[in-house]
């Protein structure tokens, strides 16, 4: 079950780490869901066509990046409402993939790619002697390790480089960066592109692991990732923990399904339900912590 949790959390972690860049630059990227979907579709297509998983992952990243570029063009260049354009990205992905799929394969349903190589598992057979640690650390899909690698990478990029310093300053106090002669808009744009690339990777990780493309394969992971950014206190380590928590809850629920005989259809909504409960709990606890907040809301 822990093993499963780690596999489930991986795309969430990938997307959330990328989304963190956008978030810290001051953009709530609600387009993550669509970006993941684009990455999943492009990833498996390129992977199957080339027979290479690496090419598949790169294609996923590219697709996410390109769609994010469209997103920034409208939201930043044309100064359109960022939420509405974020929705547009989600709809564009959900609407154009069936179109392309029909055009290429004659179906908008499930796409199977039998020739696609299987995602390799790393560190198989390695054991520490403790079952819990083994299932946490060893024998996972290669994408799991990629996601883990990106945690320290994000940490360094955000907190140890000039780039990260400026990016965080853009989100926290834009003027402080502008007066220092830095193009704040460019940083915000780059941050959204990074989140697009990461979400694309997340999507490719999903579809390449399954070896099939299903309609709505992202299944809300973009939204979960968005919530994970908050639950993780907008910090890579916190996001890792939050993503693990989501993965664990979901795999636990999956296991409970068998025992409680919950219909499979209902379970499709479960990730969303878990996420919304987590989000509300988090904000309630946080609000209690801030009870002594200075600017009271008049609610009479």
């Amino acid at each position: 079950m822990i093993f499963n949790a780690v596999e489930i959390m991986t795309p969430i972690l990938l997307a959330a780490l990328g989304g963190l860049f956008a978030e810290l630059a001051g953009v709530l990227n609600i387009a993550l869901e669509g970006l993941i979907l684009a990455g999943a579709f492009a990833g498996i297509l390129a992977g199957a066509a080339s027979g290479s998983l690496v090419v598949g992952m790169l294609a996923g990243a590219l697709a996410g990046g390109l769609l994010a570029a469209v997103f920034t063009f409208f939201s930043i260049r044309l100064r359109a409402n960022i939420f509405i354009t974020g929705l547009a990205v989600n709809l564009l992905a959900a609407g154009s993939i069936p179109f392309i799929s029909t055009w290429m394969f004659g179906t908008k349903g499930v796409l199977r790619f039998p020739d696609l190589p299987r995602l390799p598992r790393l560190l198989e057979g390695v054991t520490s002697g403790v079952g819990f640690i083994d299932s946490l650390l060893f024998g996972h899909s290669a994408t799991v390790y990629l996601a883990w690698l990106l945690v320290p990478l994000a940490l360094v990029a955000l907190y140890r480089t000039p780039f990260g310093l400026r990016l965080r300053a853009v989100g926290a106090r834009e003027e402080s960066v502008i007066i220092a002669g830095v193009d704040a808009v460019a940083y915000r744009r780059i941050a959204v592109l990074i989140s697009g690339v990461a979400a694309g990777l997340a999507g490719a990780a999903i579809s390449l692991r399954l070896g099939v493309y299903l309609p709505n394969i992202s299944a809300g992971r973009g939204w979960i990732a968005l919530v994970a950014i908050y639950l993780g206190y907008r910090h890579p380590i916190g996001i890792l923990i939050a993503a693990l928590l989501f993965g664990f809850t979901e795999s636990l629920a999956g296991a409970a399904q068998g025992l409680l005989a919950i219909p499979g259809t209902v379970l499709l909504g479960l990730p969303y339900a878990i996420t919304v409960v987590a989000m509300i709990t988090y904000s309630a606890l946080r609000a209690r912590g801030l009870r002594r907040r200075r600017f009271i809301d008049a609610h009479f």
Binding site: L78, A80, L87, A88, L91, L92, F99, T102
Partner: peptide
């Protein structure tokens, strides 16, 4: 045989608040 709806929505969402 595909849904035009989502794409129409997407285009409108992209354009409607753009300057």
């Amino acid at each position: 045989s595909f849904e035009l709806g989502a794409i129409i929505q997407a285009v409108i969402f992209f354009m409607i608040t753009a300057h």
